Amino acid sequence: MEVRTIKVFTTVDNINLHTQVVDMSMTYGQQFGPTYLDGADVTKIKPHNSHEGKTFYVLPNDDTLRVEAFEYYHTTDPSFLGRYMSALNHTKKWKYPQVNGLTSIKWADNNCYLATALLTLQQIELKFNPPALQDAYYRARAGEAANFCALILAYCNKTVGELGDVRETMSYLFQHANLDSCKRVLNVVCKTCGQQQTTLKGVEAVMYMGTLSYEQFKKGVQIPCTCGKQATKYLVQQESPFVMMSAPPAQYELKHGTFTCASEYTGNYQCGHYKHITSKETLYCIDGALLTKSSEYKGPITDVFYKENSYTTTIK
């Protein structure tokens, strides 16, 4: 009895394709271990004539594949690729409408935090270190965002349907971005203890939790000093293409032309909904596939993004 075979390709990165001759009487799992086709788990399936010449994702289970996976995804987590594939199996079914010149995501599976993050990423200057993220990001900007969303979920250790947080998501993504040249110098002034300067680099240099107003941050924000008295913390120097200011959701007025974009969060910790506000020729609110415009805006804002380049204080 002759062994019926077909020729397929296996890959971990969709760049390096490895030619395989597979036995049609055995499952993919018996031949390769966990195997995925377009995100779908085909591990328990036997090869079919229609699979001839198709590319299958496999887990990096030998040295060659491990090197290829690390170079593309910059992670050695053995569960990463499987999590990416199972997320992709959902995100490829989502709709990605162009809204006001940006790629958004039609609401499904509690994905409003991903839509808000995706919209924000198209408006701030950011370059990702893992080629996987950078490639998928370019495709997302062009309207094909399924891979990018699935990668975000995998890097953030999230599953489809789980509630997510924009600030946490951005923080994970910033860790995989090139923020080497970003720098922030802060000064804390206390009447009792004097003053202390701190220099922050990388992710810490672009994120701040405690106030939404970048102007206020430049002037000074009140913080408790270690001595128990009130101290003032203010920005001395900022070198970065953008800054992200966050605070627990509270009524906040966004003035046209003073910011790049913002995240609105309605609801409580267990259950809520994100919308995205962007400042173009007027203010726009993007909620999944829905767009509304207004000249002014007041609502429960939790993150505001500002364009920056270089700032030095005039406070002496």
Rank of each mutant, 00 (worst) to 15 (best):
S79F: 15
A231N: 03
S25H: 14
H51G: 01
T10K: 13
E253C: 13
Q270E: 10
L151F: 00
M207S: 09
L88F: 03
T116F: 04
Y284R: 07
K233Y: 07
A140H: 02
Q30T: 14
D38L: 11
Q251N: 10
Q238T: 04
S310G: 09
T64K: 13
A231W: 02
R139F: 15
T75R: 07
M24A: 10
T313L: 13
E162N: 05
Y265S: 08
N61R: 10
M26I: 14
H273M: 02
Y36A: 02
T258K: 10
E239C: 11
K255R: 12
M244S: 07
V185T: 10
H74K: 06
Y208T: 04
N110Q: 10
E162G: 01
T282G: 11
T76G: 10
C271T: 10
V236G: 07
P224M: 15
G299Y: 03
Q196V: 12
P249C: 11
C156F: 01
L151I: 01
K233T: 10
L151A: 03
D13M: 00
T314R: 09
L88K: 05
L283K: 05
A231H: 06
T35W: 00
T282F: 07
K95S: 13
V221M: 09
K183C: 08
T232P: 04
G143V: 01
A40W: 11
A132G: 11
T159R: 11
F305S: 05
Y311G: 05
Y172S: 14
R139S: 13
I45K: 11
G267C: 10
Y72L: 11
M85L: 15
N147S: 12
E2Q: 09
G164H: 07
I286C: 04
L200R: 03
H48G: 10
P97F: 09
C227E: 03
A146M: 03
V3E: 13
T27A: 09
T266G: 10
N157G: 13
A132F: 00
P241M: 07
Y28L: 05
L65W: 08
S213W: 05
M207E: 06
H276G: 06
E264V: 15
S246R: 04
T226F: 09
L119T: 01
Q175I: 00
M85T: 03
E71G: 11
K127Q: 08
Q123F: 03
D38T: 08
K275W: 02
L290I: 11
P249D: 06
N110M: 02
E71P: 05
Q238I: 02
G202N: 07
D135Q: 13
L121Y: 02
A40L: 13
E204T: 05
T266W: 09
D180E: 12
Y137G: 02
P131A: 02
M245C: 08
T159S: 12
H273Q: 04
Y137P: 01
A145D: 01
S279Q: 07
V99C: 08
E2H: 09
Y274H: 08
F70V: 11
T10C: 14
E52K: 10
L102C: 06
M207G: 07
L254A: 08
K191W: 07
T116D: 09
T313N: 08
R83D: 01
Y137A: 06
K307R: 10
C190G: 02
Q98F: 09
A69I: 14
K218I: 05
Q196P: 03
C193D: 04
F32P: 02
T27E: 14
N89E: 08
H18I: 07
P249F: 02
Y73G: 01
A142G: 10
K229C: 11
C182G: 06
C193R: 03
N16I: 11
E239S: 13
I6T: 10
P47M: 00
N49T: 11
G164Q: 04
E264D: 07
Q237R: 12
Q270N: 12
Q31M: 09
K293A: 11
V206S: 06
R83Y: 00
C149P: 00
R4H: 14
Y306N: 05
Q195F: 09
V236F: 09
L81K: 07
Y137S: 03
L102Y: 08
L126G: 02
G257W: 02
V3I: 14
F305G: 05
V236Y: 09
T27L: 14
Y234K: 08
Q237S: 14
Q251H: 11
D77C: 04
Y306Q: 06
K44H: 15
K219M: 08
D180N: 00
I152A: 15
K275G: 03
K106A: 15
C149D: 00
M24I: 12
R141K: 11
Y72E: 15
T11A: 03
F80L: 02
I277E: 04
V166E: 00
Q31D: 03
I45Q: 12
T91Y: 04
G210H: 03
G228A: 05
T27N: 09
T260Y: 09
E2T: 11
D165T: 15
E204W: 03
L81H: 14
V3M: 14
E239A: 06
F259R: 06
A247G: 08
K7R: 15
Y57L: 12
N309Y: 05
N157L: 00
P47E: 00
Y113D: 04
Q30E: 09
V203A: 14
K316Y: 10
T19F: 13
E308G: 08
C261G: 09
T103K: 01
D62W: 02
A142E: 14
L173Q: 01
S104C: 00
A262L: 04
F56P: 00
G39K: 03
S295F: 12
P130L: 01
N147G: 13
T116P: 02
N16W: 06
P241T: 08
S263P: 03
E168N: 02
T55F: 03
V3Q: 14
V22M: 11
G288P: 04
N16E: 13
P47W: 02
G210C: 06
Y265K: 15
P131E: 05
H74M: 04
A177E: 02
E68H: 09
V189T: 13
R66P: 08
A205W: 01
